[in-house]
Nucleic acid binder design. Structure first.
Lengths: 181, 181
DNA sequence: GGTCACTATGCAACTAGTTGCAATAGGTCG
DNA sequence: CGACCTATTGCAACTAGTTGCATAGTGACC
């Protein structure tokens, strides 16, 4: 179970409310972990119970709760990082669809591939903007910056690669559409 | 929910037992969908209930049940293929670990990256073997072969890209290990 | 003063996926 | 013949993630 550890990591960067975390998980963080706000609130409550975080003072807005990591949370995170082991699971329905298309004949998937391509390009642009903003001057970077840059690179690579694959498949599908027309 | 549709696709290629399906989901199919045998049996029972598949005669082995797709199942698959929509979610704990490493200082992740790299290389080799076996002669390929090849390419690309990323990150980590020594 | 949008939190019910275990049938090796 | 391996099916309990909905404060705009 990685969500609590993702939250701990995020909270170590900066104490935050559940709402803040949810937004971060929607944007930049969303590349390597995704979570709904409901899930986040639930998990924060559990983590408070476990003594990993505490509510750190409700700055400003009435109901807002800002969480901060306690030593026990930090220890748990270190334990989990060292433990390692899980392998991420790939599950892509579009590939199942393509496989069905291969068996049952043309099923008109070009539009779905175009959507997917647009998706990759959109995210790629977002990551490139972050890269420019945060790592524009590549040289004088300290260790933290280098590692963070490596994480972002995983996203950049993933989107570029995915986009390129979409283009190739579209070439095949469009080709046959022309031939069949 | 895509598992039943993955199963329908697989069963259209060839009527199979739950056990067979589980093995296929472990190997080549495992690239784009993964499922445990428990999950598969449960789902097959549901699909039989729904009238999408039927038990097709227990060839040979006593307890073995071979499932085949019924017209209703085929119709459901076509509906689902056309519906589209879901975007696959990426969830990679290793990137959370790297992020923790970026914040908390070096956390000794090189070994985990090496494991990941080995993983990518192992799967890449497996996919390349499939490519050689099934698509060795690229030219006279019919449509089905071209699309199936495109699916395999997604796997090949993914693993190559992942492996390359691992090597880059390892270069960063090893570099600093040398510098720190 | 009312409504509208955004910030902020949360519960309840459901679905999908995992883990742990067990049973039965058949074949193989000593 | 008995011990063991692997094929094959399955249940039960649990965990993680999703969906749908509810609530409440705040600031802005008409």
């Amino acid at each position: 179970m990685s969500l609590p550890h993702a939250l701990l990591t995020s909270l170590l960067e900066r104490p935050s409310s559940g709402y803040d975390l949810a937004r971060r998980f929607d944007s930049s963080m969303g590349f390597f972990w995704r979570a709904s706000h409901q899930q986040i609130y639930r998990e924060l409550a559990r983590m408070e119970q476990a003594g990993w975080v505490r509510v750190d003072g409700d700055s400003g807005n009435a109901r807002k709760k800002v969480y901060a990591v306690l030593p026990a949370g930090r220890a748990e995170l270190l334990r989990w990082v060292a433990a390692g082991g899980e392998v991420p699971v790939v599950r892509d329905p579009l590939l199942i669809r393509l496989r069905a298309d291969a068996i049952l004949g043309p099923l008109d998937l070009a539009d779905q591939l175009r959507d997917r391509l647009a998706d990759h390009e959109r995210r790629l642009a977002a990551y490139e903007a972050i890269a420019d903003r945060d790592f524009g001057d590549g040289d004088g970077a300290d260790r933290t910056a280098r590692v963070r840059r490596a994480i972002l690179d995983a996203g950049l690579r993933f989107e570029r690669n995915g986009a390129q694959w979409c283009r190739e498949v579209l070439a095949i599908l469009d080709d046959e559409a022309r031939a069949g027309a």
